[in-house]
Nucleic acid binder design. Structure first.
Length: 312
RNA sequence: GGUGCCAUAGCCAAGUGGUAAGGCAUAGGUCUGCAAAACCUUGAUCCCCGGUUCAAAUCCGGGUGGCACCU
């Protein structure tokens, strides 16, 4: 069984930790192709803010799953897993190694653990109705309702986390099954991948934050403001508008705040995002952590990483 | 040199006699179809010294620092 699994190398980690350059170097060393695991780099035009790898950075290594969707397209984990699996299988069938790169924890874990998503069952009207009820009756009312049909799920949710409570109710509404049942069934199939995952991190948090701050400055030099202005004038879709880098500059375009204030906030939001990414990867004990501030130079780190990959 | 105002957690800030609201940040965490999102948890004895009082961040005196105005 295990022999038939597809080997998969994953390089994950917080933003600005150096995933892109490491992945390219790894691909070069082992004959790999990069597969992005990033919820925002999938969009066309959102280049600077999402730090999409440039042609120069890619150094001729094929990068899949980047910049193919329209900014107004609503994307989801389910779609990601479906397509990413196909891409990885294709790379493998051509005798190359797939190297997954990215920082979207939900996409990563759903793909690697082969979460099975059932056919689409969203009901936006029902969601909207529940949202209005939450406003009128209070969030607790929705959670109480969920507790009546699925006490297990309700126990895990905080009433203020309205989005999740609504989703749980929505699943019951559209499928007749509780989210607990459905989630239980989603893990039935074993993963087709034999994954070796590496998470980039910094021993000194400030080291990472300095890199983040610096990178935002570079994005600004590269024209982030103009890119953001374009999306301010042509608003993004439901998924894409969540990207960090545009919404933080809107108060400046609206004349409510100075550019400097917005930039400070943008840096702060990026730092907070990096922290959240880390909590996601830290809880997966299979992921090996590599600390970027342990190495004097990139090549030393690359050697250490390749050692982990070869050993596994 | 004089007069007035102010001094509470990293920042903003409420509280005017009974043992310190709140917001932001920070740190940690949750995560199954919007996830770069959403959500949870997380800290102080109130500039210093002395006094009044059963009791002071809160009143009085002095000091230090800042701001404003005046000569």
């Amino acid at each position: 069984m295990a022999e038939s699994k597809i080997p998969l190398i994953a390089i994950v980690g917080p933003t600005a930790s150096g995933k892109t350059s490491l992945a390219v170097a790894v691909c070069k060393a082992i004959g790999g192709e990069a597969v992005s695991c990033d919820s925002m780099q999938i969009y066309k035009g959102m280049d600077i803010a999402t730090a999409k790898p440039t042609a120069e950075e890619m150094q001729g290594i094929p990068h899949h799953f980047i910049g193919f969707a329209e900014p107004d397209e609503v994307f989801s984990v389910a779609k990601y897993c479906e397509s990413a699996k196909e891409i990885i299988e294709d790379i493998h069938s051509r005798g190359k190694k797939a190297v997954l790169v990215g920082g979207t924890g939900l996409y990563y874990s759903s793909l690697v653990d082969n979460i099975e998503f059932l056919p689409e069952e969203t009901d936006f009207e029902y969601r909207e109705m529940l949202r209005k009820r939450a406003e009128a009756e209070g969030a607790q009312a929705l959670l109480d309702e969920l507790a009546a049909i699925d006490p297990e799920a309700a126990a895990k949710l905080h009433p203020n986390n309205i989005g999740r409570v609504i989703r749980a109710l929505e699943i019951y509404h559209t499928t007749g099954k509780t989210i607990t049942d459905q989630n239980g069934q989603s893990r039935n199939e074993a993963s087709p991948f034999e994954t070796v995952a590496i998470c980039l991190d910094a021993r000194d948090r400030q080291f990472l934050y300095d890199r983040i701050n610096k990178r935002v400055d570079i994005m600004l030099e590269n024209g982030l403001v103009d890119e953001a202005r374009a999306f301010y004038e042509n608003p993004l879709g439901r998924t894409a508008k969540q990207a960090i880098g545009y919404k933080e500059l809107n108060p400046f375009f609206a004349g409510e705040k100075t550019l400097e204030e917005c930039i400070e906030n943008l840096k702060m939001q990026t730092r907070r995002y990096a922290k959240r990414q880390l909590t996601w990867f830290r809880r997966d004990e299979r992921i090996k952590f590599v600390y970027i501030d342990d190495y004097a130079c990139f090549d030393d780190m690359l050697k250490a990483v390749l050692k982990i990959i070869v050993k596994e």
